[in-house]
Amino acid sequence: MNDLATYNFAYLDEQTKRMIRRAILKAIAIPGYQVPFASREMPMPYGWGTGGVQVTASILGPEDVLKVIDQGADDTTNAVSIRAFFQKVANVAVTTRTKEATIIQTRHRIPEEKLSEGQTLVYQVPIPEPLRFLEPRETETRKMHALEEYGLMHVKLYEDIARNGHIATTYAYPVKVEGRYVMDPSPTPKFDNPKMHMSEALQLFGAGREKRIYAVPPYTDVVSLDFDDHPFEIQSFDKPCALCGAEDVYLDEVILDDKGGRMFVCSDTDHCEDRRACGHAGHMLARKEAAE
């Protein structure tokens, strides 16, 4: 990574950033529409979020404060290395606190803390095309978007119900943006879909391998597709977070031992820590304290 120091601010050259910013502006102007862009090689493999990294690199300024999460956590390998990358090539301040960040690059989650104006959420997207499941031909899916022919999305949901008795899609759950384009929210759990709706923050999506950028500007309608008799529902969890006691948050299962012991805790680690710092405690924490 040593020779990265000789690269331009935020790694990409200004020419490339301009090209990507133009794609971003177009994406913001047409919410939910996938804008093609000339994706560059990044010093990390595809699947590591090269699309999101290029978007972040193009919007990042020296004053920004960057947060990077993967599955809601700041300390996973992917998040740590992307954060380190930007510290190195842009020397920006980094944080794990949602509140303090101006740019949050994410894979899989939207922070539990409500985002506010001035913040930008950058998603790493593996497959941007929501229609691909049933229509592999790119020429045809483009035409479907252009002509607003989205019956196929409901065919997918129909199949779900026919097979499982309910809509079993739990992540990458398709949404309609501003009443026009159907969009794949990337592999976030459908739990997070309602957070996209009328969000105060700007949401940008970058797919590196597929060379697409799309966006949801602040205060935009984002509606999850469904049937009248099978309305969209988010996952619900039986118990609150074992550490901070939070309800109405997305939980991950943590295996505690090899005897089947496990607990459910916030997938958003920052949110969980924040709550604990404020004195909230889940049953595991309470038990531990009692033992001490």
């Binding site: 022919e149 019956g151 196929l152 409901h154 065919v155 129909y158 119900i161 469904d226 049937f227 009248d228 008799d229 099978h230």
Partner: peptide, 8 residues
């Protein structure tokens, strides 16, 4: 579904 039927 293509013509807008939304009742499974």
């Amino acid at each position: 579904m293509a013509v807008g039927d939304r009742h499974y």
